Amino acid sequence: MVQEPYPDAVASHADVLRTRYASRLPDALEDLAGPAHGRVDLPLHVAWSGLRTYDLDKSRQCMSLYRIVLAEGQGDDIVSFLNRDLLLAQWPRMRTMISRHVRGVWEEAFPELQPGESATA
């Protein structure tokens, strides 16, 4: 039987993802200073495949941009492209369309995103 040299050091895939997403979180939702209207061009390191320009005034495009930035964006991207009010307004619907790892990290860090919490907090 071969024994792993550091059995406790092996992190699960879920733990790796949660750590990655947690490291990108803003300090507060108020730090999300992205635009609330208009067209947004995402850089290649965020939107590396498919559409890169999104119209925030079109609900589906806005939701797509937020899903991509939450999953692929770095900390600077998150505060530059996401807007606090738009995130709070979209979260109840969007939370079912993003990975459980992203959702869990964000809802744990920001209780106002949890179901049943007030979006105006």
Rank of each mutant, 00 (worst) to 15 (best):
A71R: 06
L86G: 11
Q74I: 14
M1I: 09
T96P: 12
Q61V: 01
G34P: 07
G75K: 15
P92V: 07
S12C: 02
V79L: 13
F81I: 14
L86H: 06
A11G: 05
V69E: 04
G38E: 02
G75Q: 15
L113G: 14
Y21Q: 11
P5T: 09
T120F: 00
P35M: 12
S23C: 10
R67G: 12
Q61L: 11
G50F: 03
S12F: 00
Q61K: 01
S99P: 01
S64A: 11
Y54V: 14
L82Q: 07
N83P: 02
I68N: 01
R60K: 08
I68Y: 03
E30W: 04
L70N: 01
H13M: 03
G75F: 13
A22H: 00
S49N: 01
S23F: 00
S99F: 09
A109N: 08
E4F: 07
Y66I: 14
L29K: 11
M63N: 00
E107A: 11
R60I: 10
P92Y: 00
P26V: 11
S80G: 04
E108D: 09
P115S: 14
L29V: 15
A119S: 14
P115Q: 15
M97D: 05
E72P: 05
R67P: 00
A11R: 02
R95G: 15
D8L: 08
Y54H: 11
K58Y: 13
L70S: 02
D31H: 03
L56H: 00
L29M: 11
G73H: 11
D31E: 07
G116E: 14
L44T: 10
S99Q: 05
Q74M: 13
D15S: 15
V102N: 13
V16M: 04
A14L: 07
E112M: 02
L42P: 08
A22P: 10
D57P: 05
L65R: 01
D27P: 02
G116N: 12
T53I: 09
E4I: 09
F110R: 11
G116W: 13
L88Y: 04
E117Q: 15
H45M: 00
S12D: 12
A71T: 13
R103F: 05
A33K: 15
R18Y: 05
L17H: 08
H37P: 01
L82P: 03
D15K: 10
F81Y: 14
A9Q: 07
W48E: 05
S80E: 09
Q74W: 13
I78T: 00
P115W: 04
R18C: 04
E108P: 12
E72C: 05
L25F: 03
Y21S: 09
G34N: 03
R20F: 03
Q90C: 03
L86W: 13
V69D: 05
G104R: 07
K58N: 04
R84A: 13
D41T: 00
T120M: 04
S64H: 10
G116D: 12
A47Y: 08
E117P: 01
D57K: 01
P43Q: 10
S99K: 03
Q3R: 07
T19K: 00
E112H: 11
H37D: 07
L32F: 02
T19Q: 06
L42V: 07
E4Q: 08
L65W: 03
V69A: 03
C62H: 02
V2Q: 06
M63F: 10
L87R: 13
A119R: 14
L56W: 02
R100G: 10
A89Y: 08
